[in-house]
Design a protein around this nucleic acid. Structure first.
Lengths: 257, 257
DNA sequence: TAAAACTATGAACGTCATACACAGTACAGG
DNA sequence: CCTGTACTGTGTATGACGTTCATAGTTTTA
């Protein structure tokens, strides 16, 4: 019943806890170089280019050698998802709102730079050191707002979800990377036209009205930073309202005493 | 240059546009029964149980017969993602806010019932008839709020993202389905403990403070409906503020005239 | 009745993740 | 210094899977 839970060994390795034995040949690899290689491949060729064989050959070993470091390909993907995150921006005296805006946008940009994250990230709570550092900074930004720990975490995870949603939208509509894999739609204009052609105005009254109105026509940037800020502000306005509510609660309590 | 864009043939078939030829043996299948079979398998065994062979055998044909109806497994997954959506709730005289709350929760519940959607859904804009019906109803609920079409769409897509985020959170933390595939974490209590054990309080000050505070301890429902409503209200408060802003703009314009 | 158009089949291929036995290598203790 | 031990990378093998293709069978059209 201690904290001696086995814990996925990949997670251990992500935290630098490589096994401590000093016997046999010195390992030629470590988890970091493996994941770095895998990330490079995924960035260049998409996730479908990432196979055990391709990663192994990039780091110069046989395919099966990787299994000395990771238990399965799933583990590799988990490690990649953490490894793709750079250090978070530091909240150098910014307001919580400015920082979280910056934080969320940066988060989204990472996903856009590594579009394969959209296919890897199951939105599961992170366990790797890099992703947790991001979480930490978001919580830190909310210090002094009167929110409790649970609320802060929920705010952060909601913002994470928003970053992912926005990235997915930009990627699937505007993007059109050459390395894109599920390129169902090639541009915003197409999407609007296709929909307009498919929709029965009786069964889909509101949607076909929207399509006829010409939103989404004109591919150039109907999903742009303004739209990102738009949706984000919906959230942050809500957060701000909550903070105000907590503050007034606290004030009322102090008046009472 | 007409709207005669080829359009993924799966999409055509999702809309019931099966080819019209009347020669040769009558087809024994159609896309709907194939996707229904695939969805049943995915619900029962998870996404990894869904192979061309397993789906084909469930509908009683050889594996390769499926390729008469779908171009690839990717197409099958696309069709599954649409087919898993039941008809949306109808806004029987509800306020936009009540309806969107209902809508988002129902959306999330669908994802929870079909957890494999988390791995299939790339958050790409939908093209199938069922998913678009959901979108239509959300837009319809926002009629009369003064928002323009683009804003309505952005609100709906933000809510979609929120539903997915929340479903992912519940699934990965609380869930613990037997059919779960990437069961990295088995319960909320574990998550908090594991994190508390891993974190260096110096490098992760805010996060380890949160962990020490005991949030996330006690697996029973730290992610519950209250939390869902909490985050959702952040969003809806923002939407409400926007609607108010649009309304006052309109009023000012009419005063001026 | 014959051709045409379409359907399902079975075999075959290439790719991939992964298991396993083996060979080589470095440290520990005598 | 030397031997055992524990660990690392390799090669081969296997089974599952997605997909292609030629073929045989079936229904409609002419």
């Amino acid at each position: 019943m201690d904290q001696e839970r086995p814990l996925p060994s990949v997670v251990e390795r992500m935290w630098g806890r490589e096994p401590v034995t000093r016997r046999g040949p010195r390992p030629r690899l470590d988890l970091a170089t493996i994941t770095a290689a895998a990330i490079e491949i995924a960035d260049a060729e998409g996730l479908s280019g990432v196979s055990m064989a391709s990663v192994a050959s990039r780091v110069g070993v046989a395919a099966t050698a990787l299994y000395r470091y990771i238990g399965s390909k799933e583990d590799l993907l988990t490690a990649m998802a953490d490894g793709a995150a750079p250090p978070p921006p530091e909240p150098a005296g910014m307001s919580w709102r400015d920082y979280l805006t910056l934080w969320t946008r940066a988060h989204r940009d990472i996903v856009l730079e590594h579009a394969w994250l959209l296919s890897v990230d199951r939105l599961a709570p992170p366990l790797g050191p890099r992703r947790l550092l991001w979480l930490d900074r978001a919580l830190a930004a909310l210090d002094g707002t009167g929110l409790d720990h649970g609320e802060k975490i929920k705010v952060a995870s909601t913002l994470t979800g928003y970053a992912l949603t926005d990235a997915a939208l930009i990627h699937s509509i505007g993007g059109g990377d050459p390395t894109m894999e599920n390129a169902a739609i090639t541009g915003a204009a197409d999407y609007g036209e296709v929909l307009a052609g498919l929709l029965d105005p009786v069964a889909y009254p509101a949607l076909s009205a929207a399509m006829r109105s010409g939103v989404m026509h004109g591919a150039e940037g109907w999903v742009d930073d303004e739209d990102f800020v738009f949706g984000l502000n919906l959230l942050l306005d809500g957060v701000e309202a909550l903070i105000g509510q907590r503050a007034s609660e606290k004030q009322r309590a102090s008046e009472k005493s």
